[in-house]
Amino acid sequence: MSAREDRDAAFTAFVEAHQVRLRRIAYAVCGGEWDRAEDVLQTALAKLYVSWPRLHAAGTELAYVRRIIVNADLDERRRPWRRERPGLAGHDPAARPGLGVAERTDLLAAVRALPPMQRRVVVLRHWLGLSVAETAAELRIAEGTVKSQSSRALATLREQVSGNRVG
């Protein structure tokens, strides 16, 4: 098997194992745009392919792609022409055992409505389980900013969710 075939086989195995979750991460940080999430994922995986030998040897492929996804979307949104759009129309999250469909829909909608940086903090810190320091490094912000963004996100989510559940 040639070096390129080796590279392609290993890369393909990685993509097949992780692409669904990686796209969900992209979707979450993009604020609910599947097309945009796919673009971001494609960009991240293409960059990964270029650096595959180095990253695969170090076992840091997943962390690298995750960082590219978050940063790609940040960079994109820093452009002045980029405008935030609301969630995907007609998109209905699936039911999950232990959480009602309506509750889960409300929760994901509330996450999607968070300001971009709060949304990223939620994804990295509270979904993917990064520490405060790791989240700060990933997003290139101060640890104090991670805490404040997390706190604000929690307040917003709590308010929205409790309002929906009471109402």
Binding site: Y27, H91, D92, P93, A94, R96, E103, L108, V123, L157
Partner: peptide, 11 residues
């Protein structure tokens, strides 16, 4: 709940 909802994915 947020983590679980995000992890579960979408229909």
């Amino acid at each position: 709940e947020v983590a679980a909802a995000l992890e579960a994915g979408y229909d």
